[in-house]
Computed example of a mutant assay.
Amino acid sequence: MTGTSETRRAGGRDRDAEGRARNARPRDGLGRPLPYGEAGVERAPEGVVRRPVRTVAEAQALLDAGRPFHAHEVFEDAWKSGPEEERGLWRGLAQLAVGLTHAARGNATGGARLLRRGAGAVEEWTATTGRPRPYDLDLAEVIRWARELAAVVESGDERVDAARESPRLRGGAG
């Protein structure tokens, strides 16, 4: 959703066309809500069913642009719409994107925790399925990146630059 034209205000809350609560405030690149009327970044549409290769490409583009919160939404769509046996993979990748989001917002504790949790989920999925490179994802590299970034985030009190610290999902091929 990119604006209030797709939502309506009911009882002081934004609602989508089906009446579900849906925050229509514009958001910045890290997903933080901005005041109504301010210019925000375009939001990733929710509930989109994509092929896995498209999911990876869209998420990588968002990560490269310093928009890990929005990449998380793309991974979340794959997690919720994909085959049951892949949900752990997509959920773990979504957690990594949220961890980077928290780290970039200055939340070192939450960022490190989610980076480690996501790395663990991806590692567990890889071990369980025996698939270290599904959809050309370099999961070993992604896991290494997450754990190293978690240690960096915990060691300092500075926010990380989300674009500069974003992972290479395909091991440099992006």
Rank of each mutant, 00 (worst) to 15 (best):
23 N>C: 13
23 N>T: 07
23 N>Y: 10
24 A>P: 00
24 A>C: 06
24 A>K: 15
24 A>Q: 05
25 R>D: 05
25 R>Q: 06
26 P>K: 14
26 P>E: 07
26 P>N: 13
27 R>L: 14
27 R>F: 07
27 R>M: 08
27 R>V: 15
28 D>I: 08
29 G>P: 03
29 G>H: 10
30 L>G: 03
30 L>M: 02
30 L>D: 01
30 L>T: 03
31 G>W: 07
31 G>D: 08
31 G>Q: 11
32 R>Q: 12
32 R>Y: 06
32 R>H: 13
32 R>G: 01
32 R>K: 09
33 P>W: 04
33 P>G: 04
33 P>S: 15
34 L>N: 01
34 L>G: 00
34 L>W: 00
34 L>S: 00
34 L>Q: 02
35 P>Y: 01
35 P>W: 00
35 P>D: 12
35 P>G: 04
35 P>M: 01
36 Y>A: 09
37 G>E: 09
39 A>R: 14
39 A>L: 11
39 A>I: 07
40 G>V: 06
40 G>W: 11
41 V>Y: 07
41 V>R: 05
42 E>V: 10
42 E>C: 06
42 E>I: 04
43 R>W: 03
43 R>L: 12
43 R>N: 12
44 A>G: 05
44 A>P: 10
45 P>A: 11
45 P>Q: 10
45 P>M: 08
46 E>Y: 06
46 E>D: 08
47 G>I: 12
47 G>A: 05
47 G>W: 03
47 G>M: 06
47 G>P: 10
48 V>N: 08
48 V>R: 05
49 V>S: 12
49 V>Y: 04
49 V>K: 14
49 V>Q: 14
50 R>W: 11
50 R>P: 01
50 R>Q: 03
51 R>H: 14
51 R>P: 12
51 R>S: 12
52 P>E: 09
52 P>K: 04
52 P>Q: 07
53 V>E: 15
54 R>T: 13
55 T>L: 01
55 T>R: 06
55 T>G: 08
55 T>C: 00
55 T>V: 15
56 V>W: 13
56 V>M: 09
57 A>N: 02
57 A>R: 15
57 A>C: 03
57 A>I: 00
57 A>L: 02
57 A>S: 14
58 E>N: 10
58 E>D: 15
58 E>Q: 14
59 A>D: 06
59 A>N: 12
59 A>V: 07
59 A>G: 14
59 A>C: 10
60 Q>T: 03
60 Q>G: 05
60 Q>Y: 04
60 Q>K: 09
61 A>Q: 15
61 A>H: 13
62 L>E: 14
63 L>S: 08
64 D>H: 15
64 D>S: 15
65 A>P: 12
67 R>G: 05
67 R>V: 03
68 P>R: 01
68 P>M: 07
68 P>W: 03
68 P>Q: 01
68 P>G: 05
69 F>V: 04
69 F>Q: 00
